[in-house]
Write a protein that binds this DNA or RNA. Sequence first.
DNA 1: AATGAATGAGTGTTCATTCAT
DNA 2: CATGAATGAACACTCATTCAT
Lengths: 205, 205, 205, 205
Amino acid sequence: MREVSDGGGRRTSRGERTRLRLLDATREAVAVRGYVAARVEDIVALAGVSHGTFYTYFENKAAALDALIGTTAEELQAVVDEPWDGPDGAATIETVIGHFVAVFATHAAVVRAWLEASAHETHFAERLREVRGGYVRRVAEVLTPALAGTGHDPALAASALVAMVEGAVTQGVVDRDEIEQGELVRTLRSLWVGGVVRLGEDVEG
Amino acid sequence: MREVSDGGGRRTSRGERTRLRLLDATREAVAVRGYVAARVEDIVALAGVSHGTFYTYFENKAAALDALIGTTAEELQAVVDEPWDGPDGAATIETVIGHFVAVFATHAAVVRAWLEASAHETHFAERLREVRGGYVRRVAEVLTPALAGTGHDPALAASALVAMVEGAVTQGVVDRDEIEQGELVRTLRSLWVGGVVRLGEDVEG
Amino acid sequence: MREVSDGGGRRTSRGERTRLRLLDATREAVAVRGYVAARVEDIVALAGVSHGTFYTYFENKAAALDALIGTTAEELQAVVDEPWDGPDGAATIETVIGHFVAVFATHAAVVRAWLEASAHETHFAERLREVRGGYVRRVAEVLTPALAGTGHDPALAASALVAMVEGAVTQGVVDRDEIEQGELVRTLRSLWVGGVVRLGEDVEG
Amino acid sequence: MREVSDGGGRRTSRGERTRLRLLDATREAVAVRGYVAARVEDIVALAGVSHGTFYTYFENKAAALDALIGTTAEELQAVVDEPWDGPDGAATIETVIGHFVAVFATHAAVVRAWLEASAHETHFAERLREVRGGYVRRVAEVLTPALAGTGHDPALAASALVAMVEGAVTQGVVDRDEIEQGELVRTLRSLWVGGVVRLGEDVEG
DNA sequence: AATGAATGAGTGTTCATTCAT
DNA sequence: CATGAATGAACACTCATTCAT
């Protein structure tokens, strides 16, 4: 995972504060206008610093988004790293999905920008693939025993399930409203569990 | 938006052929570099026409993508308009998903550009919402009776199912290989059917 | 010798004229302000075209100087390619030096910019080395028989003689005034011939 | 131009040492990247001091180069100020050229930067002209009696001879290798002496 | 004396779009 | 219909210099 070099700053607490302001401003600008349309000028205006200061902290616009993505990727990864097995499969899945939905709801703007940036710069596409890959591998792992003899490829099934959750969340279906989130989580849980059960009942054809 | 008249006369007059070449070139350019990065210069170079000619046929770059999207949207809509009810629910779903996957596999590049363009221009986002909305409404309609009393919102469930299919397809999981497509369709069918069955078994909480 | 690609233009006589205007403007701008200080804005203002037009003809500022250098390098090379041997050595040398001085007087501004640019971009330094190398090799060739047994390296002597002529000319000693040029040529001729004769009289020590 | 006081006190107080380090760093940076391309940031990084410290010692980047040039100019001037007349003209010339070559070999990087800076800032061009002028005047003075009645302008001849020596040395022909230097000096001596003798033999045309 | 964060003017370059031929 | 030269607004990025601490 490529850590972006920052030219300077950050050695004092004043610097650290400025960096944080710039990060917030980047998130904001990117949320409102998208990654490509967000100009460095917008960002510095929001942060209340001069143009040059941006480049004290980030090598370029991409580096600022990359830094933003860093946090999101970490939190997303944390969900993957949780223990996923409990006595009650359905409850476990619900917990996992719940965390996933919560993370996405928190970072929705960043994820949307990340998606957009993936169309322009390979780096972002790769980073996205990495994170998704982590999820898919983990889900596939959990699925594998149940799918033996069904003719279903665990990786394919995992991709679809992850896509379902990610898509449902990113397409603006939820925001930070907890009730809405809870509703979505319940529905996703049943779709997931029911789907997986059915997969397990198929016989290789 | 200057639409070339096609009311009468030969179907592939010289002008019509140029328009088609430009459309192909746009698809190609957009597939390789993405919508924003694809320059009009790339397109005309691929089409083998001059710079100015592009603007004889399209008002601007967005219009060319929009024309491309037209075909995709139509074919996508055709799937929605098919009769979805048959004696065997699972078989019907599989047919529908199969068509959906096939359409996506054919138009994957355009869809990716469409997604990307949605981040920049409201028009594309709206058109995407419309098409998705059509799917979601149709699926929700079909789901409604089964979900009565379960506490699940049919629209929410439909969104998730559509997102699953769309996501599985767009994330590069399939290309035009029929066997791969068939495998994916089988898996999606089981996930879909099993998920829906489970939804129907839930009781309002 | 790298020919710089030009993005477009030059296919019509109108384009050719614009290109020439830009080349003239570049020469002028570079003569007045130097290579680094000359802005593309200065050039297009002098040429009376828009900013973007510059980039229709040249990839970047360096390419415009490179094109300018092209002519100079060719004329300089032509002097090298002339026959240098005549019945009267001194007269021949005078002719050669005369042409050299004339070429330099014509292209003094470009050469000064070339020299300056050599400090920034390897490409220009290399091209300069090539041209100088051609001169030095040619002079060394002519000198070789006379220097046998003297312990003098022909290449070293040639470098010094070429440097003398180049330096005398570039350091603003002459402009296009023919009389001045004639005077300088006479003096350089005698220094050159006398120097070479003396070299030939030395004995290896 | 803020000159650090060195009227009294310890010669290498802490401040003096920092100044020296900055001077060395400037020389180094300028040798590697050239005057324009060398950034203050490069200099302070090499010197191991902070950005602001640079400006404690030098008003600006030009002032640092100017300070560097000071030493070179002094040593160059010292050669001019030596007694140039001895019983043996050729031997004297060889001595003078030898010193000149040695000075240039020592300060080659600074001289190249000086040359480059002359294209940007009048101040450096003037200073260069001054130093060159000193040489040329001195040489012309020595040449004058010998050139009476020859129609050669002593100043012109002197310029050419100085250009020969300067050019031969700056164009990378020598470095600090004494043997190479000795060889070059011998060759330059013979070219110089032979050339001057020939000039003296010409008759006004 | 030293630090390093902040400044902002300056400039090269891109590219969608127009329009005379 | 077609051409391709011309346009110019828009932006990212650099770096010498300042100044609060």
